[in-house]
Amino acid sequence: MAIDLAAAGIDQILANQKGLIAIGAGLAVGLAGLGSGLAEKDIGSAAVGAFTEKEELFGKGLILTVIPETIVIFGFVIAIMMII
């Protein structure tokens, strides 16, 4: 579906661009979130395993589990910068 630029007028074009930016921002957070999730699922299960064997490892396990979370934060920062 092609947009007739001349007929659409400047407002319509801007609105379309805004929509694309929103999709891009959504992808940035969503895909980064998937990445974090994929990494965390393995670390998390291993950490729970270690934690059941040795309770003192809770702190260390938690840290290792949340390390990949920074990935989604990067996604978030990018998304914010795109929207604004």
Partner: peptide, 12 residues
Amino acid sequence: LSNVLSYSRLLA
């Protein structure tokens, strides 16, 4: 860099 950026979670 990643350490500092990590604090943006306070907002997120």
